[in-house]
């Protein structure tokens, strides 16, 4: 981030951890689904979210499908409150990664608009951190092939899965480099499918950790810090996470921050206000949960997942204002 702060910042990264809500879309007339493919609208929506809610970053896109689309997956753009999602997987078996075309960040799918938007945000608002969002290789794979086929292949065709993940990590790296060249101040890698709860420690170590580290190393080479977001319970992979080279780990609302702090002392922790609570309220409960998280020692206060598009602005403010008030 741009400068040292004397309290934990409060952010909503974008990407899988979507930062937009309908109330602000209506105010700005930058609505889903049009905003997903329009750099100017995307930028205005992100900036307005920052102004209206007090979230201390800019974050695009508003879904986790841009890499998969650029690699040949078919995406449906959703509606005004439903984010884009995959409707057709280009791969029917893990071997078929060989048929995928290497992505070109300046040409394929929505990537050029995301880069253009990143550049707009970075040049127009150099004082606000603009986050570049990537999807972890294993989660990217679950957007290119049926997740169950992939999970079964981890046992049935491990060598082929490794070759596929290597290919996907390379592609994500070239997109990540382009994001940084266009002004992204830090990188968030979301890897919701690579949870310890789904994979267990052995498979996490074999199929998630090395490829995440490969990506993080490259982003570090370009001088940018990295946050990794992992979903679900992570107790089974505490030991593995010590070897993750990211500066900061972001977690789901099921994770107990105090317990995680003790288990992984060296990492900065980000989290983990329930997005269901954020959407439904009430405000005093959001404040209470946010305060508890700050007391438990989160280094960055953030929603535990993507913000639901129906979340009221005043609920998000309840979280951001609590962070800004600090804890006595």
């Amino acid at each position: 981030m741009a400068e040292q702060v004397d309290r934990p910042p409060v952010i909503a990264p974008g990407g899988m951890m979507t930062m937009a809500c309908k109330e602000v879309m209506d105010q700005t007339n930058c609505r889903w689904p049009a905003a997903h493919r329009d750099a100017a609208k995307m930028a205005e929506l992100s900036i307005s979210m920052h102004h209206e809610t007090g979230i201390e970053n800019l974050g695009i896109p508003f879904c986790m499908t841009v890499e998969a689309e650029a690699l040949g997956g078919e995406v449906e753009d959703g509606d005004e409150v439903t984010e884009p999602h995959m409707i057709h997987y280009p791969m029917k078996s893990v071997e078929e990664w060989r048929n995928l075309q290497e992505l070109n960040p300046y040409k394929d799918g929505r990537l050029p608009s995301i880069l253009a938007c990143t550049s707009l945000l970075s040049k127009g608002h150099p004082d606000i951190p603009a986050i570049g969002n990537l999807v972890g290789p294993l989660s990217l794979a679950t957007s290119l092939i049926d997740a169950f086929l992939l999970f079964k292949a981890l046992r049935q065709r491990p060598e082929e899965v490794h070759r596929m993940l290597d290919f996907l990590a390379d592609n994500s790296i070239s997109y990540g480099e382009a994001l940084i060249r266009n002004g992204a101040d830090l990188i968030v890698i979301s890897d919701p499918s690579a949870t310890g709860e789904i994979l267990g420690p052995d498979m996490f170590n074999a199929f998630a950790l090395p490829y995440l580290n490969q990506m993080i190393h490259r982003m570090h080479t370009l001088g940018k810090p990295v946050i990794v977001h992992i979903c679900g319970r992570i107790a089974p992979v505490y030991e593995s996470l010590k070897r993750l080279v990211a500066e900061c780990i972001s977690v789901d609302s099921v994770v107990n921050i105090k317990e995680m702090r003790n288990a992984i002392p060296g990492k900065k922790l980000m989290g983990n206000v329930s997005t269901i609570l954020l959407q439904n309220g009430p405000v005093d409960m959001i404040q209470k949960v946010s305060r508890n998280l700050l007391r438990s020692g989160v280094d960055i206060l953030a929603p535990a997942c993507g913000i639901g598009a129906k979340t009221p602005v005043r609920h998000i403010r309840a979280m951001t204002e609590t962070a800004k008030a600090g804890i006595q």
């Binding site: 999970f151 709860e197 994979l199």
Partner: peptide, 14 residues
């Protein structure tokens, strides 16, 4: 007991 995870469950279900 966290001896099996989702990949194993899926193959057992198959």
């Amino acid at each position: 007991n966290e001896e099996y995870f989702v990949p194993e469950i899926l193959l057992c279900a198959d």
